[in-house]
Amino acid sequence: MVDWFQNLKSIVTRHEPGDDPHALPRAAAALMLEMAVADDGGEDVELEVVHQAVRQAFGLDANELDELLDQAHQAKRQSVSLYEFTRQLRTGLAPEQRAELVEWLWRVAYADTRLGMHEEHLVRRLADLLAVPHQEFIRRKLLARGG
């Protein structure tokens, strides 16, 4: 799990769009934030998983984390669809890192100990948009669930 964070951080640094060094972290955070509010209830524990993932993945201190998550919230509210985020991540991350992002989406979905049908549908849709193969989608689900 920690290896993924280091790999993602190095890839983000290497492939990030020139003018905005926070574009990929913000896009990943926006997807995880969307997952955290996909069902009724459990948002606090799900948001804690999002904070943990973003903090560890990008080595942010508390102020940087708050700022990035605020930007991700704002970007999510202003976006027309999740496609703009998944497009950035699909082109900016290697297949393994995209699969590991899907695993984090599953972790957010499972954080409140129940999986709602809207959450499962959203992870499936995001995995498709991130070009994560179905077999890897299922494998990451099982890893996140602890099985």
Rank of each mutant, 00 (worst) to 15 (best):
P25I: 04
E48K: 12
Q71L: 11
P21V: 15
P95Y: 08
D70N: 15
Q78M: 13
E34N: 08
Q71P: 00
A111Y: 06
A99D: 09
R98F: 03
D39P: 00
A109W: 00
V50C: 02
E46L: 01
S79W: 08
P21L: 12
L24T: 12
D44V: 14
E84G: 02
R98S: 03
F85L: 04
G116Y: 02
R90N: 08
S79H: 07
V37M: 08
D112Q: 10
Q88C: 03
L82K: 03
D19E: 13
Q56T: 04
E103C: 07
D61M: 07
Y110G: 02
R77P: 00
A27E: 04
P95W: 08
S81H: 13
E48F: 06
L69R: 06
Q88R: 14
A36Y: 02
W104D: 12
R77M: 09
S79Q: 10
D20F: 12
A57R: 04
F58G: 06
L60K: 10
E84W: 00
A30E: 01
D70L: 14
N63T: 15
G92E: 08
L60D: 03
Q78W: 07
D66Q: 14
S79T: 13
A23K: 07
L69E: 10
L89T: 13
Q97V: 14
H22F: 10
A30R: 00
D66S: 15
A36K: 00
L47G: 02
L93M: 14
D70H: 14
V54K: 04
V108L: 07
A57T: 13
V54S: 04
Q71K: 13
H73Q: 15
G42P: 07
L89G: 10
G116E: 04
E100S: 13
M32C: 11
S81R: 13
V50S: 04
L65F: 11
E43C: 01
R90F: 05
A94D: 10
L101V: 09
P95G: 06
N63C: 06
A36T: 05
E48I: 09
Q52D: 15
R98N: 03
E46T: 01
G92T: 09
M35G: 01
D39G: 00
G59N: 09
A109D: 01
A27P: 09
P25F: 03
F85S: 01
V50M: 00
Q88D: 07
Q88K: 14
L89P: 11
E43H: 07
E100W: 14
M32F: 06
Q97G: 06
T113I: 06
L68M: 07
V108F: 05
